[in-house]
Every structure is written in structure tokens, then in C-alpha cells.
Design a protein around this nucleic acid. Structure first.
Lengths: 128, 128
DNA sequence: GCGCTAATTGACTTTTACGTAAATGCCGTG
DNA sequence: CACGGCATTTACGTAAAAGTCAATTAGCGC
């Protein structure tokens, strides 16, 4: 496990721009340390970026991603806070389960669409 | 199966604004017929809106949703077009499979996060 | 036919998530 | 030490996806 990553290493790994990573820093999603003015990203930052990209692919906004990341952090020490967090986690899970239903339905319709295409090809006498 | 739906009926059903549905019409995603100036949405339009909302929840852009909707339509008559469409469908499915992986990973991490919270509560002597 | 509600149109504004450009800093190499 | 090559900062720009507002206009209920 390397200690530090430069910004360009991570831009290549995740296929994003430096602008984007700095933007995430501005948004408080990652906090790379500095050597002089240069950002040094630690493995934890790298992991966060991975989580951010996942969230993006799932269509979550930055605000939602921030919320999700909060949930991955150390659980709070106070009972009320803990119960609140559990509630929030449950809500987000419901959100994800809805996405999963949407996803399965869309996949099923695409399967159907492809089948129609294949059938049509067969009608035209094309061997797939 | 009803023949027509008014714009406000659909805004209520899908919890969107009239502006949004008109925007989708401008974008060519739906084509309600008109009685005078009033839009009348048919069941097929309603189904399209359902698919649009699904796409939105999955984080697809309007352009991507338009592509997906194209795929649900009647398959084209020409062999080259058909093969191209099959390729596009396969790409979109790959996209969805990536989303599914992202989704499962995120769900797993949320499960972990919740477990941490529950454990922490137990440590604090709270009976869940 | 009248009035009111609902719908339409068009223009302008907003928010999100970055892109892009300009000016400048830092640093290893020849 | 000049240079190339990243990095940084600041500031402004932009595309997508609507929201908002104002000015009509159409239907309907009576």
C-alpha cells in the first residue's frame, strides 16, 4: 500500500480531470495533505474517490454522495446521533433498492428489445 | 386502459411539473396528441414517461434516455441497422451491469456501516 | 354568454458539475 | 540558470434539466 498518490496518478486511474479532483476537495469530499502547495492523496483519499465515482455512476448528486460518505465514517458516539444515522442509512438503502428495481426492469426490456432484433434478423434470413 | 390522460393527471402520478412534461415533448421523448391546444397523453406516452423516470433515477441523461427509448421501438428493417442496434443494446446492457455492480458494492458498504452503528449502540448498552 | 380555472407559450433564471484560460509556483535536468 | 513540465489559484464560462413568471387562451359549468 503506497503512502501517497499525486493528483495526476489519480486522474489517470479514475479517468477524471485535475479540475474534478480539486472540485471534490473544495466540496470537502477529500482532504489531501499538502507538501508546499502540492496535494498528496493518501490511500484513504483514493478509496473515497473510488466511492465518489461509484456514486456518480449511480446518478447520485454531489450532495447525496457527501451524505453517503458520511455514513461510511466512524459511527458517532451519541445515542441519538447513532439512531438518526441508522435511519438515514435505511433510507439510502431503500433508495438503492428502488434503483435496483429500475435497473432490473430496464435490463429486462433491453433483453426483449434485443430478442426482437434477433428475430427480425432471422426473418430476413440472416444467420446470427 | 384509458384512452387519454391530461397533463396534470400525469404530473400527479409521476410527481413532476407540467414544465417537465412539456420539456420532454420539446425533446421529442413523448408526442401527446392535441385537442385544440390541449395535450392529450395516450397510454403509450404514459408508458414512455414511466421509462423516462426510471432512466432518470438511474442517472441517465436525457440524451441517454432518448437512446434507450429508441431501442424499445420497433426494430428497423435493414440488416445493417439491426446489427448496429443490437450492438448498441449490448453496450447499454454493459453499462447497466456496471451500475449493478456499483449498486451491490454500495449496498454492502451501507450494510457494514449500519452494523457498526448497531454494534456501537450495543456497546453503549442500548437494546435495539 | 360569462367567469373562472386550467392549460399553453415564451422568455428568463437557476442549479449542478465541472471546463477552460491566464497567470504563476515549484522542481529536476542539462 | 534557463527551461520544460506539471501544479496551483482565480475567475469566468457552459451545458443539461428543469424552475419561475407573465401574458394569453381555451374549455367547462352554470
Amino acid at each position: 500500500m503506497r503512502e501517497y498518490y499525486t493528483i495526476t496518478e489519480l486522474t489517470r486511474e479514475f479517468d477524471v480531470s485535475t479540475r474534478t479532483l480539486r472540485f471534490y476537495e473544495d466540496e470537502g469530499l477529500v482532504q489531501p495533505v499538502r507538501r508546499g502547495r502540492t496535494r498528496l492523496f493518501r490511500p484513504s483519499d483514493r478509496h473515497l474517490i473510488r466511492q465518489i465515482m461509484r456514486g456518480k455512476r449511480l446518478g447520485f448528486s454531489i450532495a447525496e454522495i457527501r451524505e453517503i460518505i458520511q455514513m461510511y465514517k466512524e459511527p458517532p458516539g451519541e445515542v441519538g446521533q447513532l439512531k438518526l444515522m441508522i435511519k438515514r442509512i435505511e433510507e439510502k438503502r431503500e433508495d438503492l433498492r428502488q434503483k435496483r428495481r429500475d435497473l432490473e426492469e430496464t435490463l429486462a426490456e433491453l433483453d426483449q428489445a434485443e430478442e426482437s432484433c434477433v428475430e427480425r434478423l432471422a426473418e430476413l434470413g440472416v444467420n446470427t
